[in-house]
Structure formats: C-alpha cells, structure tokens
C-alpha cells in the first residue's frame, strides 16, 4: 500500500472497503467498557458455577431432612464475625444489608477452581459443565443476533454456507470477544471444523507448573466450556439446532516458530462437527 496515495481524490475505496470502513467506524462509535472488567466477569463465572452446584446440593439435602431455614442461616454466618445479629431482629433493609455484607461466607475463586478440578462426582462435574455451556450458548445466540443485525459486511446473506458461517465465528465473533481472531481454521469440507486459538485470551493468566501440568490442565478445562457453548449458540442462531452440532475442546501445542512464549503454554482447539442431515 503506497502511503502517498490519496484515496479520496484518485483511488476511491472499493465497495467492500467502504463497507468495512463504515462498519469499523460504527463499531468504534458504540459505547464501551473495559476488556478487563469483561474478562474478569467471564472468568469468575467458572468458579461460581462450582459454588452454585455446592449450594444447590446442600439445599437439596437440607430440604430432604426438613431442616432448611436454620441450616442455611447457620451456613451464612461468617467465621469469627464479632457481631452475629440474629437476622430476624433486624429491620427489612438491615436484613438485606446484613445478609450479604456480614453473614455471607464467600469462597475464594482459586479454591473453587481447585475443588472443581478435583471433583470426583461425575454427575456434579457434568452439571457444572452443562451450566457453563448454557451460559455460553445464550451468549452466542444473542451475540449473533446483534452482530447480524448491525450489518457486518463480512456477512453475505446471498450465499451463506457453513464454511462462511465458521469464518464469521473465527473472525467477527472472536474479535468482538477477545480482540483477535481465531488463529487457524481447518476443515474437511464435510462438516468437520477445527478452530484453533494459540493464545486463548481468558486463560492467558494461568500458568502451568513443571510438576503437575496434567492436574493444572484439568483446572483450565472448564474455562473452555463457555466458548464451546458460544459456538453452538451462534450456530443455533443461524439455523443449526444444537442437536446437529457437536463441540469439543482440546489443548494443542503451540507452533514451534519464534512466537513469544508468554502466557498460557498451550493453545486450544475447538472441534466442531455439524451433521448435515439430508432433507
């Protein structure tokens, strides 16, 4: 590209370039929040899914023993709190304040993540993964509606086949979420796709130690459920019902080139299988 070219006077942008520019300007004009706030929210969903599962199980077992109210209150009382005011003695507003500010026992994220990785109960583990996928699914559906509606020039309604849709996910969806596209898309042109992100953003801050990499990979696995759900959600929004789509994630080695090896040492591969049913 010759920097000296005056595009407007001599070489007008092509139709497609114009659209891309318009779209870019439009995106820049949208209201924003910080990436960090978003990433932290996204990542905290995982340990909280574990906490929710624990809480639901406690509630279930308490309900069975008929002892729910007092036990839940007991659970809420923090450790070593100087003032344990019995909740019923407070006014309504004070009750509200008290219930989360003073009496809530909050488990820190890293403990929950560890607990999840060490969870042996398969049913619970699957429940949690399913919860995460659902959230990703809803996100994907809604994101797609929004992106489609805002006239992304990369969406050509004339001929949108599955490959183009996957490219849309790799480029537009991923960029919205993680500020960079998918690194590599592979397909066998028969409904199987591999979306490879060598630096999947939400997990970059995690590191693998030398000693127990397998266990630590297990800790990171649940963080891939949301993007899996997301991909399915986007596909669902574009007409591919979840029954027709299989989505699995796996860790892959980073390519052995001179890319800086910072952050999480493994890349992620999202394997998407779309069953093309004959009509």
């Amino acid at each position: 590209m010759d920097p000296g070219r005056n595009y407007q006077a001599n070489h007008p942008l092509t139709e497609q370039e114009k659209k891309q520019q318009q779209f870019r300007l439009f995106q820049e004009s949208l209201p924003k929040v910080s990436q960090l706030a978003f990433q932290m929210l996204l990542n905290e969903i995982v340990p909280q899914a574990m906490a929710v599962e624990n809480e639901l199980n406690d509630l279930n077992s308490l309900e069975q023993t008929g002892d729910r109210t007092s036990a839940v209150e007991g659970e809420r009382k923090g450790e070593g709190e100087a003032e344990n005011i019995p909740i019923n003695d407070l006014s309504l507003q004070e009750k509200e304040v008290s219930s989360y500010n003073t009496n809530l026992k909050i488990q820190p994220s890293h403990k929950l993540i560890m607990e999840l990785a060490e969870l042996e109960d398969e049913e619970k583990y699957n429940n949690i993964l399913k919860r995460l996928r659902n959230i990703g699914f809803e996100m994907g559906k809604k994101m797609c509606e929004m992106l489609v509606f805002s006239n992304n020039p990369n969406l050509h309604f004339k001929e949108m086949d599955l490959l183009l849709i996957m490219k849309f996910i790799c480029r537009d969806v991923w960029k919205q979420l993680y500020e960079k596209p998918i690194d590599n898309l592979k397909t066998n042109h028969r409904g199987t796709f591999y979306l490879i992100d060598y630096n999947y953003k939400p997990i970059q801050a995690f590191s693998l130690s030398e000693e127990a990499p397998a266990k630590e990979l297990k800790m990171v696995e649940p963080f891939l459920e949301i993007p899996l759900g997301l991909i399915k959600g986007v596909l669902a929004s574009l007409g591919y019902s979840p029954e027709e789509v299989i989505c699995i994630s796996s860790f892959v080695d980073k390519p052995a080139d001179d890319r800086p090896k910072y952050g999480f040492p493994k890349g992620v591969s999202f394997h998407v299988q779309v069953n093309m049913k004959p009509k």
Binding site: E28, D161, L162, L238, G239, Y240, S241
Partner: peptide, 30 residues
C-alpha cells in the same frame, strides 16, 4: 440449503442489496 428450516435459518435471498450510506458515527446514545 438452510441447516434448519424449523429453527428459521435465513440466508440466500438473492438479489443485490443497495448500500445505504447514511451513517451517524458520533451518536453515543446508548
């Protein structure tokens, strides 16, 4: 060729769409 007519996938209407060049860039009203 839609992947799922039942869920309403919608593409391929044919015909060219006309570019509407009205774009208000600075509207930050959210």
């Amino acid at each position: 060729n839609s992947g799922g007519v039942t869920t309403g996938g919608y593409f391929g209407t044919g015909g060219n769409s006309n570019s509407n060049s009205n774009l208000s860039v600075n509207n930050s009203n959210s």
